[in-house]
């Protein structure tokens, strides 16, 4: 059987909020090492990869590898029934066609359980090559969400240009243009407020705002976000999930005609 108990249940709630706009359904691959999810959005422009390590769970048992196909809208509705401070347990028998979610209040005075049907999804998995990125930018997640939201007013694409001076986000459209430049922070007292740029070579790429704004739904998961870029390869936007895992969004670039 499969059983995973997460004391910080709010993390799972936030993970669903972070993927439910991009994906309608996806499979959770459960193994000894933990739980993984990988799925592309319907237009095959973006891909979400979630990794939750077994050690991050207060109790984790996975007798046999299990693939649980789920409708994420339904799963999100169920997780909405959990309070932010609830302990969340996911349970499934080995060849089950349902999964059970158990929510325990901290005082154990209230215990809820919800059972959901599983789906057979034959989604093609993509092999994501290990890449040594030309630029890796770490910045406050709220800052990145703000930049994407503000520049979306100007156009449907955002140009991200990373150089040794810093990183510039630009957009242009009918009403005009917008440019936001972030310099590498010299010294900040709080790591979470730092802008850190590791650059092997300068990179400039163009991305659709619509997807970037969907990725920033993961902002509540982590105070920091990292952007990894290399010429003409997908952008990686990564948020940590507490200290138990991470969520990575891959976005194909737009190529100038």
């Amino acid at each position: 059987m499969f059983e995973a108990r997460l004391v910080q249940g709010s993390l799972l709630k936030k993970v669903l909020d972070a993927i439910k706009e991009l994906l309608n359904e996806a499979s959770w691959d459960c193994a000894d090492s933990g739980i993984q999810l990988q799925a592309m959005d319907n237009s095959h422009v973006s891909l979400v990869s979630v990794n939750l390590r077994a050690e991050g769970f207060d109790k984790y048992r996975c007798d046999r590898n299990l693939i649980m196909g789920m409708d994420l809208t339904s799963m999100s509705k169920i997780l909405k029934c959990a309070a932010n401070d609830d302990i969340i347990t996911m349970k499934a028998q080995d060849n089950a066609d349902t999964v059970t979610f158990i929510f325990e209040s901290p005082s154990q005075e209230k215990v809820s359980d919800y059972e959901m049907k599983l789906m057979n999804l034959d989604q093609d998995h993509l092999g994501i090559p290990e890449t040594d990125y030309a630029c890796v930018i770490k910045l406050p997640s709220g800052e990145f969400a703000r930049i994407c939201r503000d520049l979306s007013n100007f156009g449907e694409s955002i140009v991200i240009a990373c150089s040794k001076e810093g990183v510039k986000f630009s957009a242009a459209g009918d009403i005009g243009t917008g440019n936001i430049k972030l310099a590498q922070t010299s010294s900040v007292d709080k790591e979470e407020e730092a802008v850190i740029i590791e650059m092997q070579e300068p990179v400039t790429l163009t991305f659709a705002c619509r997807y970037l704004n969907m990725f920033t739904k993961a902002t509540p998961l982590s105070p920091q976000v990292s952007l990894s870029m290399s010429p003409d390869v997908p952008l990686v936007v990564e948020y940590s999930i507490g200290d138990i895992g991470q969520i990575q969004y891959f976005l194909a670039p737009k190529i100038d005609d």
Binding site: H44, V45, D124, L126, I128, S157, V233, A252, K254
Partner: peptide, 14 residues
Amino acid sequence: AATQTDLRHFFKAR
């Protein structure tokens, strides 16, 4: 204008 590319152009299905 810029043309959106498809992820499968970069990542091969396993």
